[in-house]
Design a protein around this nucleic acid. Sequence first.
DNA 1: CTGTTAGCGCTTTCAG
DNA 2: CTGAAAGCGCTAACAG
Lengths: 333, 333
Amino acid sequence: VSERVTIADVAREVGVSMMTVSRVINDKGEVSPMTRQRVLDAIERLGYRPSGIARGLATQRTGTIGLIVPDVANPFFADVARGAEDQAYTKGYNVFLCNTSEDPEREITALESLEEKRVDGVVLCSSRLSDADLRPLLRRHPATVLVNRELAGNNLGTVMIDDQAGAQALTQHLINAGHQHIGLLAGPPISCSGRQRTKGYQRALVTAGLTQKRSWMRFCAPDVAGGQRAVRELLTANPELSAVVCYNDLVAIGVLQACADRGRNVPEDLAVVGFDDILLAALVTPPLTTVSIPRRELGRRSMALLLQHIADCAEGCESITLQPELIVRASAP
Amino acid sequence: VSERVTIADVAREVGVSMMTVSRVINDKGEVSPMTRQRVLDAIERLGYRPSGIARGLATQRTGTIGLIVPDVANPFFADVARGAEDQAYTKGYNVFLCNTSEDPEREITALESLEEKRVDGVVLCSSRLSDADLRPLLRRHPATVLVNRELAGNNLGTVMIDDQAGAQALTQHLINAGHQHIGLLAGPPISCSGRQRTKGYQRALVTAGLTQKRSWMRFCAPDVAGGQRAVRELLTANPELSAVVCYNDLVAIGVLQACADRGRNVPEDLAVVGFDDILLAALVTPPLTTVSIPRRELGRRSMALLLQHIADCAEGCESITLQPELIVRASAP
DNA sequence: CTGTTAGCGCTTTCAG
DNA sequence: CTGAAAGCGCTAACAG
């Protein structure tokens, strides 16, 4: 990386002003075809590449977006990140990736350092910050899209998954199969998506005119161990249950394992449905009936919404809701 | 994002020069404790945050790193990305994430746009570009670390996985268990890691003084279907085989499925070992003996190497090789 | 300990 | 169609 070639070098080489070179680079303003070609040649010959930094300082736009996720190593956010980056790429933007590890402090740091980097906008996934903490932080950014999180009052772009509809479809599927006693492993009580999914479960039961019982619902850790533990308690207390709706696929897999351990057949003795359609869902025995979330699409749409908002900032707070898709497999045919 | 507060605003507010404010921000040069405090107060009061863009233009350092991967949605690279970002975060750097989709054109574009962004360095994973294409592109960057790819001649930082040692350990494990007739499903012939793993397999056999037969080795697609197909041919042609080393876990799972289909017991009739320790490896029946690659560590070390190189650019081309770790499970006890 | 003078490399006026 | 001047917001290098 010897000496960087600047726009001045190119201008001198061709014998024109820097402005003319700038016009050629940006395809702005009229430049005579001949001059234009000579500039292009010089750029090629000298190996000139404009400095986004200098340009950013002059224009106040960096061509840069911040993407904040809890953890890219989580396949969910990895897919979201892929979709977001793809979309940004096609529009000529680069994206800063920030992981928060679910740590509010780190989320704050991310938002702040992205501000220092003067990103043109931020896509923030599953923010764990309180409204009060989040609002002032976002106000310092020119544009933001929230994924999987609402923020009342601010007219921000928002992209959500319809958790309630997903859980309702799953529960309805069980009801259609003749189940009348359906349990729920609801995930962590703080989880927003958990609450929505619980609502969907309840609404399906109400719509079908089926009984609901408090004891048929149980919170659990959102992983395999959580499902394993919770389902034991659930079935011991409620032997009448013939089906169970799980917060997510990992919980459902925990249920599968618990059933295998106690010689309970799925789906004959107990039908099981998950949520998310993770890779594993199709591979366990029996394969899981679940609901699939268009994760890459989620990232793509979020980024598209943000870039559109940046382009014509007239637009207000568009809000998008993506529908999960029911995937029927052997665990609940 | 009303009017941005600048260093000049802070200076005016306190009644000092911009330099003094700058010194406070950067903890550089001596500033009287009192002035210092007044500056800090004003920064807080005004909500000032320095512009990384302006600073980058002045210092020629952006505090920014480019990370190029084939695909973050691939769990392998997602983990690498996580490790790399974590490391960068602890050192105060932000990282640009670029996906190439295995497309050479897009890899070139990524390298070029990262140059425009004036990143301080690049971590490039599994580059698909030829040496001839890659070299001039990298020369334009101040620092680079290559992951999972060598480039002769250039003294770049390089981080590799020891594929050969991994395959050798796996094969040795089978030999220790008494196997004498060991087959190999070698993956695609073009694969560089495939060649290394084949070498490791062969070396283990040679070291143990066991026979090798050409017909015991077979190329295959690096997925479940590939393993399924190849193992049938392999066993039909060589019924004497009591164990098989697979290019990766997916191939091994294909072998498991083929065995299940034909009533062949694993590991009694055939011992099977994989490579990578993907999530699935522990969950199939029987669980796979395999070798685990420290993926997050791979990302972390790569970024650490790059940042160290940036810090004291005196250093030359350090090269790191990470060892896979043998994981013994039921498919080859 | 603090301030002044020059840029960093580009674009935005406004004039030719 | 082309150019000159004035910054964008910050810091390096000197001076006091």
